[in-house]
Amino acid sequence: MPSVEPDNKPSWADQVEDLDEDVDDVPTTSGSSKVDALLTISDEELPPPEEVIDGDTKIITEYSINDEGKKVKIIRTYRVETRKASKTIARRKAWPKFGDSEYDGPGPNPSTTAICDDIFMTFVTNKEEALNDKEEDPMAKLKGTRIVQCRICKGDHWTTKCPYKDTLGPIQEELEKSDKPGEAAAGAKGGEQAAAARPAGGKYVPPSLRGANRGPGESMAQRRDDQATIRVTNLSEDTRESDLQELFRPFGAISRIYLAKDKVTHQSKGFAFINFHRREDAARAITGVNGFGYDNLILNVEWARPSNQQ
């Protein structure tokens, strides 16, 4: 404990500005097993802690053994500062520690006192502040948009909370029931209709899926009826479109033939799509040509999966 010197009281513990911890690993044995290392340490004496005061810096070097059984050298560098203080403050500085700090040594205990990273006060002007506020509230952004839509009245609330639940609800249910048979008949085109009927509220819908108001992003392939398309694989490289035409012409009218070709060599990649006008024709083509030997290869013919699922 420093003695009480009313006006000019030097105490190295007065101010801690920089506390650097250098942890040096000093392996005691090299290449041997861990147990050996532990044994060597238990035999060896740890060097006593050193304290060097050089001008206004104080360097404490301590040695300890860490959990892995290695000797660790800790170097702490303190800056010693002398400050003038009033008598009462100087006297309080000399008070012995008590309570949970009773057994702490002089100076700050690293377990209760730490020095944080450098931080700065950020000066703000009012304009920035206003901008920040706008950015930072994600809930405010959502306020304008509709998150939920009532199935009954299309209002901005959950269906179960609908005020017309008891009046409109049952009527709509009945309507739906009467609609059902018609819907089943149109089942073939159900997928496309569902996509068209999806509410456009808020969520991005690609142009290709925008039901009635198809935008400029529409592609030719999409309008094609995939229902009567077959896929032919295991074609030879020499195959040409005219060959396919010859092969499939007998089954019915063909609307389109697509033969996958390499961009550079213009040779067939070994598969093709044939669009028939009628599904029945396509079905007959599958049963007729599937397994057919063509140009030393056995053709594989099946229904083409819709292109957007491939």
Partner: peptide, 18 residues
């Protein structure tokens, strides 16, 4: 349960009131 007192200048804990 333990109020603490610290030296404001260097953050050294003087004690606790247990």
């Amino acid at each position: 349960t333990k109020p603490c007192v610290w030296y404001a200048i260097n953050g050294e804990r003087l004690g606790t009131y247990n």
